[in-house]
Structures are given as C-alpha cells and as structure tokens.
Design a protein around this nucleic acid. Sequence first.
RNA 1: GGCCCCAUGGUCAAGCGGCUAAGACGUCGCCCUCUCAAGGCGAAAUCAGGGGUUCGAUUCCCCUUGGGGCUACCA
Length: 487
Amino acid sequence: MHDGQMRVRFAPSPTGPLHIGGARSALFNWLLAKASGGKFVLRVEDTDLERSSRESEEDIKNALRWLGLGWDEGIDVGGPHGPYRQTERLGIYREYTQKLLDSGKAYHCYCTDEELEEERRSLSEKHQMPRYMGKCRDLSEADEEKYREQGRKPAIRFRVPADQEVVVNDLVRGQVVFDSNGIGDFVIVKSDGVPTYNYAVAIDDALMKITHVVRGEEHLSNTPRQVLVYEGLGIQPPKFGHVSLILGKDRSKMSKRHGATSVEQYKKQGYLPSGLLNFLALLGWSHSGEQEIFTLDELVKIFSLDHAAKNPAVFDVDKLNWINAQHVRKLSDEALFEMALPHLLGSGLMLEGAHERSWLVKVVATARDHISYGAEIPKHVEIYFKDEFSFENEETEAVLREESAAGVLDLFEEKIKKAGELTAESVQALLKGLVKESGLPGKKVYMPVRVALSGQIHGPEMTLLIPLLGGQKILKRLEYVRGKLKG
RNA sequence: GGCCCCAUGGUCAAGCGGCUAAGACGUCGCCCUCUCAAGGCGAAAUCAGGGGUUCGAUUCCCCUUGGGGCUACCA
C-alpha cells in the first residue's frame, strides 16, 4: 500500500445527491492521494442518460466541496486526461470498440428486450443462471443485414472466453477468483451508442492512469468483467480495493428508510464536515491506537488500506452524534456562531439583525458543550430569547407557589436592581448572599429564580443565564411571571 | 437458483496460534451539582454452530447457519 504516488478517483453517477457511502469512498480515495502525494480525480459517470442530471452533478460537487474533499483533476478543474464526463468521451470509447469488433472480441447483438426477457425466464425456470447465451455470437453478414433492414439497432456485446479463471487481486480481500463461464457476454455499448458502466469505467480508469480503484464492495462482482475488458484490449488493469458496505440499523444496505442517507441532509441538520468525515473514516477502517477523534490532516497521516475492514459496518447515529459533538467543542465562538445562525433564523426564535452580534455569539457559546449538531442549538438557547413563556408543567409552576418563593423573588429583584455589572462572579456572589439572607437551602433559592426567569425547571447555570439576560430583561420577566401567578 | 464477499459485546472495532479477549458509542450505577447536560469513576455485555490441523485455537482449513452483494442495453 505504500507504493509511491497514487492516482485515485471518485466516479459518481449523477443520479441523486451524494450518498453517505459515496462520501466514504471519496474520503478514502482522497486520503490515499494526499498521503502519497498523488492525485485525486473526479470523473462523472453519466452514461445512464435517463437518470443522470446536471443538478445531481452540482449537488455532488457541492457536497464534496463542503466536506473539503477537493479534487486535483476532473470535472470543472480539468486536467491532462479529460474530458471527465463520460458522455463527452463517446468518441474515445468508439475507437476501442472498433478494435474489439475488428479482433472479434466483441460483436453486434440484435436481440430485442422481449427476446432477452424470454431467455432469462426460460433459463431461470430450468434453475440455471439467467445470462446471455450468445444467440448473436456468430451472425453472418447476411443475418446482420437482414436485422438492420428490419430497423433493429444493435447493441455490442463482449465475447467472454469460456473456461477461464478471472482473478482479481484485491487490496482488501486478497485473491478472488471467478469462473468466466458464469459470466454471460455482456453489453459494452448500448443500442443508442452509449457505453455501459463496466466498459466505460475500465477504459477511463486506464486512460486516466488510475493506479488504485477503491470503491464499495457492491462492485466486486463486476470487477471480473472489467478485467476481461482490460485483457481484451491488452491493457494492464489498475489495482483494486473493495471496501465493505455501510448498512442500516437492520443490516440491509443503507436506504431512505434508514433516515438521512445523503451528505446534504447531514449538512442541513448542522453536522460539521470534520465530524461527518471522522465518523465515516471509522466505518470500515480503524487504526490500532485508542484515538477516536481525528482531523482530516491527522487522517492523512495514518490512513491506509491495510486496516480496511472486510465486514460490513452498521451506520450508528449515536456514535456519529458523539463524534460530531467532539468536533463542535473544538469550534471557536465565532465559528460556532456561523454554524448556529441558519438554525437560529430557521427556528423562528429571532429575526435577522434583531440582536447584537456580540451578544448572540455569547449566547450560542453556552450551547457548545451540550449539543451534537447545529439543529439542536435553538432549543438550547431558546431560554435567552423568550421573555414570555408558559410553565413547562404543573410541577414547575408549583416551585413558585411554594411559601418561600415570593420572598426569594422579592429579595432577588432588589439585589438585581442594586447590582452593578452582572458577571459570572458577581452573580455567584449575589446568589450566595441571597441564600444566606433568606436562610433557605440553596435549592429553595435557585429553583424559584430559575423558574421565574425561564418557566423551566432545568437549563443553563444561573451564573451563565443571568449575565446574558441582563438586568432589564430579568426585571421584565419577574414582572411577567408575577402577573402570571396572579392571573 | 448460480456466483462472490463477510462473520469478536446492542453498534464501531483491536487481535494477526498461547492475552484476565483492548478501546470507543450506547446502556446501567456512583460522584459532582440549584436543574438538565457535560465531566470523573465504575459495571454489565462479544469470539454464530459443528468438524478438523496443532501440545494449544478468537486466530489456520472444511462444512453448516446467518447476513450482504452481483447476476440489466443501472451505475
């Protein structure tokens, strides 16, 4: 694995947003490139004309950029082996297809969907593997002419040699052997002239001088087809490494019903790129030390395919939350604020420009150690914004109905009025004095004040809450709550 | 159905013939504490089953079971 500069690639199909599994593949490749001083190439595999879209391509690129996984070569940035969009490389594939056709390693197939469907059905009835049996393998020129006259548009199939072992030396799985007899002649160019995945991917990886193909395990079974194409073309294949799949809680492949599956959704929920990446890195890869929290730079230093796991990994949101929380804690006040702002605005807690920025920064900072991701911020700081509130429940209200409560509040108000600047220290002193003068247990003092100020029985420390609220708001809230108790 | 991959606590996982089988998340308990968290300390919890190989298997081989992937003119 430590063999000099690597040229790796991420080659998504633009058929939807960037999936969490794709993001992990991109990360692994990116890390490999950075660690070896090599190149990370971004290629777009848009040969599925029906499902591909430019919107999805943009979404994927944006997600990659947001994650900080920039590419050295590829779409948008260019490079010596472009173009990097497969539909723009049709002429290139045609050249190789002609070679294959001329040497008899590929042939035209005029079968219709119905015919193929029928073949599959009868094979599976006989409990045989449904695969193309080679009906058009040896068509004469006259046969082909006849079909063409009928207006049939041929696909091009690769002639898979019989009785051959196709060996894949996988970087994570070791040697995997396939029997060529189990692989039917597969289509390399569809009847509309567009190559299929297994064909285009092989040619592109070779032409783009990719040294290592690291991708999800779902591609392992396709690899022998690609190896066959390389053999047919007389090209040396790249090295392959198939990383285990990411599974949902029920151990099936991650899909919508498992919750958020796209990077975009995690971004929206306010996860940090560094947190998401850290979590993804630990799915299907590990290192022998005990460290769990890594920055991207640290990962570059220690990542290697040697420690890639073979067994599939279940996506555990709890762990993601914990890891992301660790990254949140390392944020500066300013960075945390930037992250919080859209969630604050979106929650309807505040309007743009309604509060002083410096105050907001401080308020948001109080949530830092208590949240896992951005969307959790509003409910943690809500208390600073709502001067009018209802009691959380009866138990909460009961705190203020207690005999000693009214006196505590009066005394508290008096002290607030007399107090100078409210800081953590001065508030601490103020409350201590309050406890002393009232002669009550601490709890009988703190709780009424807390509830009077927020309507809740729990929340941030009073030494945090009171200075941030400030004298004016406090008096306002006291008045409000007294009115509430009477009414 | 065929082919391929995989198998250590609930989850991520270390382990690479001999260990009291790491660590983390989560769970539970205790401490801290005005509350909720956070934090600190501690606990419970794993080698799928069966055969081999070996002085000795979590580790190597085979079978079974279980999970997953592929089997498209999708990627």
